[in-house]
Amino acid sequence: MLLYKQKKNQVAKGKRFLLSVTVLGSAGPIRFVVNEEELVAAVIDTALKSYAREGRLPILGSDLNDFLLYCRNAASDAISPWETIGSLGARNFMLCKKPQHLKAADDGRSTAAFAQKGGSGSWKAWINKSLNLKISPRWISYILIK
């Protein structure tokens, strides 16, 4: 009788299953095998690495703290990064970027830094800052039209 010997590099912890992660804005899902005891944060990290390795667009980045994972079968809140993926009983997930206001709250930065970052891209703010004057938007529109 021949006995099955487990390979040295293969881990025998828990069940493994095929996971499908759809990235919001991407063409199709990413599929990979995970251990049921893996944390959601590790699944997000693996999905981001697979996404980048495949050269998919749009480019997302690699910081797993900028993303949320949702279960596609249930309309619910984002899954906690500290939960195990097997405890959810689902195999299909959606990966989305965190909204800007959630990123600022999670980073622990002050709201002033967030407000400054948000206003710096406005052309009205640039004109006001450049001229060091408070010009009303009505006058800016008038100047640009003429």
Rank of each mutant, 00 (worst) to 15 (best):
N73V: 07
A112P: 01
K15D: 15
Y70L: 14
L69W: 06
V11M: 07
N92P: 03
N35I: 04
Y51M: 00
K8G: 03
V11L: 11
D63C: 12
A105S: 13
A75K: 08
L69F: 07
V34W: 00
L3A: 08
S50R: 05
A104V: 14
Y70R: 01
L102G: 02
F114H: 10
E37I: 09
R31E: 15
N9K: 07
A113R: 09
Q10N: 07
F93K: 04
V34S: 12
I59T: 12
F17C: 08
G119P: 01
T84A: 04
A125G: 06
N73Y: 05
P29T: 01
D106I: 11
C71S: 09
D63A: 12
G28N: 14
S110R: 10
F93W: 06
L69I: 09
K97A: 10
A52M: 11
V43N: 08
L131R: 02
L102C: 06
K117N: 05
N65F: 12
P99W: 09
P81F: 02
V11S: 10
E36P: 09
L69D: 10
L3W: 07
R56N: 03
T84F: 06
Q6M: 12
L64F: 08
G55Q: 03
L2P: 15
K7Q: 12
N73G: 09
A104Q: 07
G108K: 10
A105T: 13
K13Y: 14
V43T: 14
S26K: 01
T111M: 09
K117S: 10
G86S: 06
K5F: 11
F17P: 13
K117V: 07
K146S: 03
L18M: 13
I127D: 01
A78V: 08
Q10K: 07
R138L: 06
A78S: 13
L95M: 12
G86M: 00
L64Y: 06
Q100S: 09
R31T: 12
I85P: 00
L24S: 13
Q100W: 14
A52C: 08
L88R: 04
